[in-house]
Write a protein that binds this DNA or RNA. Structure first.
Lengths: 217, 217
DNA sequence: CACCGTACTATACACTGTACGTTAGGAGCA
DNA sequence: TGCTCCTAACGTACAGTGTATAGTACGGTG
């Protein structure tokens, strides 16, 4: 072997690209993510990525499915409400650990095997618990959208608090509200700030949902 | 009047820009929206908008607050669970009517007087019903995030169904799942498709939440 | 009338996703 | 060994984005 080939081949792979994309999203924020950034990080031209992905959205889907693959399986040998709790909590934790997942779930349709695996887990729990097909489907959608909404909101508020400019503007808006026109908002401002996010807030809503579910048969 | 002034002044206003931006978002989709598009629609240079808004996000906030202003007040003289239902339903309907609102609520922090007005309505209902400060705040956040998550999902799935390419890919993914590995997903596919969105699905989750709420005192 | 602030324009920059056409490395076969 | 083909990666280019900066002309006020 005389000298290194200038353009080595087969150094890229879909998986390597996905992992690099994920790193960049978490390092620079989902918004600042770009295909050119990924390509540069890999020491490659922007168009090289198109060998593995049809477009940016296609890469987004792959990253989302990759993240969904990190979700643990449903714990067996536990009462079904606790199984439901475990699934919802681990999805929330994964979203908190990888904030980009919130945007990826909210802005793109579900697809991919890992995503289906997660749905399978929750649906299986509900079916085993004795819920009929329609109730299981409705409950699955309800739980999923609750986790999605609650955790997306939690992530956004946390980001808010980290940005001093945004935080200052929020406080300013708050203080511009007269106690006459907005008595409850003004009175409950400390509680609202305190109950934004956190395990207790998430579990509060989750338990509200579970309390409405009655074991069938 | 000799000839028309080439650059008439004071034809713009923050409100006019907001309404034009809203029109464009709904006509061409939230993603295709651009400041240059709004400026062109108004027959004005792109930089003219910066007289009224500090940047694109600032305009987004204004559009969001404008839309929130369309929400009706809480119906008085009704039992509080029905008041809660009314608030949640009208927020969902507004989001369905203006799909961009879903993205505006999910990607930007809350601010603005109209947004505060909506929070005031729901918080007031909960306080009047007798809930203590912390429970009212927690419940408010839970309800808001549920509506946000459920309706965002509903809107996205509806858009999905309208895009034939995306719809084909979803069906393909579905059919690639073996009934051995994904028994519940395969079995419940029709129910999942049928229960995605719609008034019944939304009310199902909302009633689940309300069922967990007990009237205090 | 002169002045000045402000509403708007013009130009420019850095950056995006990606369509198109080209090149070069490796594999299979004569 | 030499030829051919496939394809991974390249380079160039385009239309588009948000917005920083500097300039210009109008309207109201002295």
């Amino acid at each position: 072997m005389g000298h290194m080939a200038r353009t080595p081949r087969n150094t890229l792979s879909a998986d390597l690209i996905v992992r690099t994309a994920l790193e960049l999203m978490e390092a620079k924020g989902t918004d600042a993510f770009s295909l050119r950034g990924v390509a540069a990080e890999l020491g490659v031209g922007p168009m090289a990525l198109y060998t593995y992905f049809r477009n940016k959205d296609d890469l987004y889907d792959a990253v989302r499915d990759h993240l969904m693959g990190l979700l643990p399986d449903v714990p067996p040998e536990v009462a079904w409400p606790d199984q439901v709790r475990a699934v919802c909590r681990s999805l929330r934790l994964l979203m908190l650990q990888h904030p980009c997942l919130a945007q990826l779930l909210a802005s793109r349709p579900l697809s991919g095997h890992e995503t289906a695996r997660v749905a399978e887990g929750l649906l299986g729990v509900l079916r085993s618990a004795g819920f009929d097909a329609e109730t299981a489907a409705r409950t699955h959608t309800t739980l999923f959208t609750y986790v999605l909404g609650a955790t997306s909101w939690e992530i956004q508020m946390a980001a808010e608090r980290r940005d001093p400019e945004a935080w200052r503007r929020l406080r300013a808006t708050m203080e511009s509200l007269s106690a006459r026109d907005f008595p409850s908002v003004v009175e409950l401002a400390p509680e609202l700030a305190r109950t934004t996010g956190g395990d207790e807030q998430f579990d509060y809503g989750l338990d509200l949902l579970l309390a409405g579910l009655r074991t069938p048969s």
